[in-house]
Design a protein around this nucleic acid. Structure first.
Length: 796
DNA sequence: GGTTAGGGTTTG
């Protein structure tokens, strides 16, 4: 028994010591200043930066938010508490960053939680200053204070008890109940907002705000406010807000009273939440605001709560949005992008998960302002809101991180561009043009009372995100350690060789992008450039001659190089019953072929007669494919032609329009004009494929190499094209390869190294590759494509 | 000391 009591007492004593040390109470705010130990110097919250020297400094501020004590799993379960404090006795009231987050750790967190209430004034000493991880979200302060360690201490002055009775200050203004308005009188009124439209340009010179208000008399009165300056319009966030109007003229219109602002008018608004601080919102430089105003606001709040005004709140979270709704959405802006002159995209979230898949709107990453939403997209948290017409003006000015509210937002089911017909449709959001039904959007100050719950929801998500990032990084490392199968039993290959060892390719790009796993690449949003390390699982075409392609840069047609059978057929058909053509500009020599009735003719421009045969452009008529191939051993540039009503014409473009040594040049059937004019051949000194093509009115097709690799890095597989970068990759020119068995063999050798026949994946070399990830429209569907860029075979 | 608008069955 004795032993038991002894233990209890010891525990209590320790507890007292621990709690007494860090948080000390004083009775008056001015005592706080006296409490400042001599070695400490008071510093202003607004001036704190991460580089500020925190030693021997302290801050004094009011606690405006106090969070719960939480146990932080990532930090060995240490207890933490977040509070927000605001500096009040500042010389200039407009200073930025007067509020700051403070994180209390360990026993200090528990003690602060027990000893300090919201509204208390505190003095904090010996804190650490760190970059605020939540600045983008809460806009409070670029830094946060951390109270940790033995020196950190808190002095607290509890806030005064709620004031007793009415203040002695006299009411300077009288307010007319809304049922007592008289025509053509100028009045002051108080009311609860039951409807409001954002300011819109009138046909006159001003913006016009239209609203409807009511009070305990239950009369609803319309009110119009005209002002050139947008910032002078009342700051209304939602139906249920309280508004005070000074110097408004009452007028009868359509059998009811309306209110119109007159000279010297002012409008002040308050939120309608019972028990929230009565904080006036206005742009007026000076306005009277006293104890009686507070009372009036509180009374109106109480009355409004009993009415159906607020219960008709159209505010809906993303988790409860249904298709076809019109609703208000309170959210945070993540990113934005101008779509066209009448539409801007706002990517927002409210931390809740939508039941319907959310429509993804693809935007080039350089057109997007703000953070990447990839992680949130994946969790179905990002709402893409298309904002039209008059609302663009407001949307343009919003900065990512801003809290905002959409009014009368429309949700619609839409089929995504790349979506299969059997999949669920996606939810899109439109803020249509116009202001009917109060349609619009506006930013909300981060300290808005009705944002607090939203902010805490977002806060939880961000923690998840950060955790996710850490995990991904860890996974990355794990993936790059070679799988056990790679480690050779005879230890010929040092450990981790596959991981960090020599790659059969080198990257030639200058950008320094992080290396990603294929699994990660597949989750990314195009467009994107990234680095990967992978092996080739398969490639197509296996018959490598099929990788040689013809490509028209004009119409983008791509086709295989015609095989000799098809070309020979064109020659045979052109030669059949061919009568040599007769052109004034040409010198012609003809000979009989071995076949009866077929004449072979060769034409050259008259002004080229006598030049070297290598300089001559020779038009050949009536040959077979084999014959022109024989001729091309002796003549550099041969253009196969046929006769059409005695005039020279090109053959069908299935056949090459030019034989030049080992190379054959083809024209695009779709884009070639086939204008055959003699004068264009004179005065040309050298003939390359392009020059001849231009002279003949042919759109020349380019040679290219196209191979599809199936890449594998153990995390996933991915099909990547080698096309634009293929010539550099192989160190081979496609057009040269078209006429060279040696070069074709070189490509085959490289492919046999990348993917040795009958080899297992683990035996194949790793390739360091730069990948380009991009969208391609295919039959009106968006398809993500991967292309190997900036990568080459390593040549010793 | 003038004018604007005066909510509304919305739409990409």
């Amino acid at each position: 028994m004795t032993h038991f009591f002894f233990c209890l007492e010891t525990y209590a004593v320790i507890f007292l010591i621990v709690t007494d040390m860090p948080v000390q109470k004083v009775n008056d705010s001015s005592d706080l200043d006296a409490k400042v130990p001599a070695h400490l110097q008071r510093t202003s919250i607004t001036g704190l930066t991460v580089t500020s020297d925190p030693s021997h400094r302290c801050v004094k501020a009011r606690v405006v938010h106090k969070g719960p004590v939480i146990s932080c799993a990532q930090k060995d379960g240490i207890e933490m508490l977040r509070a927000e404090i605001r500096e009040e006795d500042l010389p200039q009231s407009t200073a930025e960053h007067t509020s700051i987050n403070v994180i209390f750790f360990g026993t200090l967190a528990k003690d602060f939680s027990q000893s300090v209430r919201q509204g208390d004034v505190v003095l904090l000493a010996d804190f650490t200053i760190r970059k605020s991880p939540s600045f983008l979200r809460d806009k409070l302060h670029p830094c946060q204070l951390e109270m940790d360690g033995i020196d950190a201490c808190v002095y607290v002055c509890p806030s005064a008890a709620p004031s007793q009775g009415p203040s002695c200050s006299e009411a300077k203004y009288t307010y007319v109940p809304l049922n007592n308005l008289k025509h053509k009188t100028v009045v002051n009124v108080y009311g609860v907002v039951t409807f409001f439209k954002p300011p819109f340009p009138s046909k006159g010179s001003d913006y016009c705000s239209a609203l409807k208000i009511t009070d305990q008399s239950d009369v609803k009165v319309s009110c119009n406010i005209f002002s050139k300056k947008l910032e002078d319009h009342p700051v209304i966030f939602r139906v249920g807000d309280i508004i005070r109007l000074h110097r408004f003229k009452a007028e009868t219109f359509n059998d009811s009273m309306t209110l119109l602002n007159t000279y010297g008018w002012s409008a002040v608004t308050f939120d309608g939440i019972i028990d929230s601080p009565v904080a006036p919102r206005t742009s007026s430089k000076s306005f009277h605001f006293g104890e009686s105003d507070k009372n009036t606001v509180q009374e109106l709040r109480q009355w409004a709560a009993s009415q159906s005004l607020i219960s008709n709140d159209p505010t809906v979270s993303l988790s409860s949005v249904h298709p076809g709704m019109y609703f208000d959405l309170t959210c945070q802006l993540l990113a934005k992008a101008v779509m066209d002159s009448r539409c801007i995209l706002l990517k927002v979230w409210d931390g809740t998960k939508c039941e319907h898949p959310l429509l993804k709107v693809a935007v080039a990453s350089d057109a997007l302002e703000g953070e990447s939403t990839v992680a949130k997209d994946r969790m179905n948290l990002t709402a893409n809101v298309l904002v039209y017409d008059n609302h663009m003006e407001t949307a343009q000015d919003l900065k990512p991180g801003t809290f905002l509210r959409f009014y009368n937002l429309r949700s619609l089911l839409q089929r995504a561009p790349d979506q299969q017909p059997d999949q669920a449709e996606h939810l899109s959001f439109h803020l249509h043009g116009g202001t009917t039904y109060g349609r619009g959007l506006r930013s909300l100050p981060a300290e808005s009372p009705d944002l607090q719950s939203l902010k805490s929801v977002l806060e939880n998500h961000v923690d998840l995100d950060e955790y996710d990032e850490v995990n991904d990084g860890t996974l990355l490392e794990i993936w790059y350690t070679p799988p056990e199968a790679v480690v050779l039993p005879n230890d010929e290959e040092p450990d981790g060789e596959a991981d960090t060892g020599l790659s059969y390719t080198v990257r030639t790009c200058e950008h320094n992008t992080q290396q990603l796993t294929l699994a990660r690449v597949k989750r990314s949003t195009p467009p994107l450039s990234c680095h990967v390390r992978a092996r080739v699982k398969k490639y197509h075409p296996q018959q490598l001659y099929q990788c040689l392609k013809l490509f028209c840069s004009k119409c983008k047609t791509m086709k295989d190089v015609p095989d000799d059978g098809a070309v020979a057929k064109v020659f045979r058909e052109s030669a059949r019953e061919n009568q040599p053509c007769d052109e004034q500009w040409a010198a012609t020599s003809s000979a009989s072929s071995r076949e009866a009735g077929r004449t072979i003719s060769m034409h050259i421009s008259r002004d080229m007669v006598g030049q070297s045969t290598h300089m001559q452009l020779i038009f050949v008529e009536g040959t077979t494919l084999d014959e022109i191939c024989v001729l091309s051993r002796d003549y550099k540039n041969l253009v196969p032609v046929r006769s059409e009503n005695g005039r020279m014409a090109l053959m069908d473009l299935t056949a090459p329009f030019l034989f030049s040594g080992d190379k054959r040049y083809y024209g695009c059937k779709r884009c070639s004009l086939n204008t055959f004019e003699n004068h264009v051949f004179t005065g040309v000194e050298t003939y390359d494929g392009q020059a001849v093509a231009e002279a003949l009115g042919v759109q020349m097709m380019q040679y290219g190499l196209l191979i599809q690799f199936e890449l594998d890095d153990g995390t996933d597989t991915l099909e990547a094209l080698l096309w634009e970068n293929a010539e550099k990759f192989f160190h081979v020119s496609a057009v040269d390869a078209s006429g060279s068995q040696d070069l074709q063999d070189k490509i085959q050798t490289i492919m046999d190294t990348v993917q040795p026949p009958q080899s297992s994946l683990e035996e194949r070399p790793w390739l360091d590759l730069c990948l380009s990830v991009y969208n391609v429209k295919d039959d009106d569907r968006n398809k993500v494509c991967y292309q190997i860029t900036n990568s080459e075979i390593r040549e010793e």
